[in-house]
Write a protein that binds this DNA or RNA. Structure first.
Lengths: 118, 118
DNA sequence: GGAAGTACGTACTTTAAAGTAAGTAACTAA
DNA sequence: TTAGTTACTTACTTTAAAGTACGTACTTCC
């Protein structure tokens, strides 16, 4: 059943969601895992130029703690760790799609200071 | 036409959206305006405990610059300024709803499906 | 002529997120 | 014995967002 929201609870719940997803690296990590893709730590390092090992590890841990991604460790040397979306994490995709659609629907207002052209 | 996204462009576009909405105050401002509600600056001050005048003004300016809300000034003394959602801003509501639904669907993490054993 | 009301702006300080650089563990192949 | 591989951690510095405190404009009311 749909929860009942007041302005305050709705805002606070969406903020909680934002905190799980925001930051400079989380979204790009997620979009490299969406659609069932499986990536090793080193794959993500290569796929995401500019990310430091610290940030990659930190963001992966947080995404895992939030249940959005899954981490599978193979007990081998050298180490092998695979990351993938959880089922719930994968179901985030349509919600982000809704946001993208919303952004696409932005009226091109000439009076506004630039949207996203280049 | 739906845009075609790569992991990089999709992540970057969603990040742009997040930047328009994130921060400690924007969402609560928006949820006090959703549904056609119109609020004066001083109304929002009262509705949002803890917000400073500086932050309220700053966030309102940014939301307005992004085209999410509209600002109407009445040339009276003392000043009167009304804020409301733009049409496009109002259409953000279902997208945020999708996020809330996603969050509601989060599995209670007692034991995630244990598919990895040796 | 001083206070009150409304909607801000400015300057400075604090805090949290991100960046940088280096180190660690465990084994393997040369 | 030493270098290489992978997946990290820790300590420290920088940067950006938010918080705090105060100032301003304009007009009416007492």
């Amino acid at each position: 059943m749909a929860k009942a929201y007041t302005p305050v609870t709705a805002a606070s719940d969406v903020e909680t969601i934002f905190k799980m997803l925001e930051g400079r690296w989380k979204l790009i990590i997620l979009f490299h895992l969406f659609g069932g893709k499986v990536q090793r730590y080193s794959d993500l390092e290569k796929l995401i130029p500019g990310i430091s090992q610290k940030m990659l590890a930190q963001q992966l841990r947080q995404l895992e703690a939030d249940g959005i991604i899954e981490r599978k460790v193979y007990p081998v040397v050298p180490p092998k760790v695979e990351y993938s979306m959880s089922e719930w994490g994968q179901s985030l995709c349509p919600a982000l799609d809704a946001l993208l659609k919303w952004a696409e629907a932005r009226p091109k207002d000439s009076a506004l200071p630039d949207t996203n052209n280049q």
